[in-house]
Design a protein around this nucleic acid. Structure first.
Lengths: 129, 129
DNA sequence: GTGGACTTTCCAGTGCAGGGCAAGGTCAAG
DNA sequence: CTTGACCTTGCCCTGCACTGGAAAGTCCAC
């Protein structure tokens, strides 16, 4: 499988595949005599895993950690569990600060709708903010 | 007011103040004969506005737009309203996709707690993801 | 033998909001 | 007269996940 084939099969770009290889997420594949990369179908499984990890909000560095553990012959289960748990904590934090921000902005906007521009204080930038 | 004074009064750094000036968020201040920046107290008002804008999740570029309108002698009200409304829409989007992600991850983790590592399929990277 | 599609490498940039460091100038106190 | 705190500019660096482009090599069909 050449790089272009793999890229379209995985729904990504050749640029990205080379980048993943450089970052250690994909092992260096065999080469044809001309130097073309030659991928095996397992690479597709690996790419699917990477995509699922990204969909879960993991960074490439975190995904690489999991892959490295797997490549060492160990089951990455507990590490993945920790990563997902931490991600959940982070998401909860993000959710609550976003909700708070939404409430603040909603309040600001409601206030704004009762203000007339002509009441603006020339000494401040904007009454709305 | 010199730059260090202003920075600590505004709760920021001198680097940031120079950066804001370079980005057009702060007007170029007067200089002492030695070339030191000399700020007037209004700069503090302007910085507070910038901070409120950031707290509302606006980018520096958006804040600059508002400031530019104000500096042109116009009231930026309607522009600010649009910015805040758009920001609210974006926040709602973020909130719902984060909530969806949280539910997915919670499901994944619950599933994971009922799996034993020894059941892992050696052909996949990880059953949890 | 030529055109076009594919591949290789390397270098550089994107957006966001600054941070770090160096080399030098300035100012007030002791 | 020196020390230390402050200021100046300039330039590169951070993290994240790519993306773009250039110059060159390869492969296959016509």
């Amino acid at each position: 499988m050449r790089i272009g084939e793999l890229a379209s099969a995985a729904g990504t770009s050749t640029k990205t595949l080379r980048f993943y290889e450089e970052q250690g997420l994909l092992p260096a594949p065999d080469r044809t005599p001309a130097g073309y990369r030659c991928y095996t179908p397992e690479t597709l499984t690996r790419l699917d895993f990477i995509h699922r990890g990204q969909a879960a909000g993991l960074t490439l560095a975190q995904i690489k950690q999991v892959l490295d553990i797997r490549d060492d012959g160990h089951a990455p289960c507990s590490h993945v569990r920790d990563l997902l748990d931490q991600r959940l904590v982070d998401i909860e934090d993000q959710l609550s600060s976003l909700a708070a921000l939404r409430d603040t902005l909603t309040g600001l906007r409601d206030e704004a709708s009762t203000i007339h521009p002509e009441d603006c204080d020339p000494d401040q930038v904007c009454r709305y903010l």
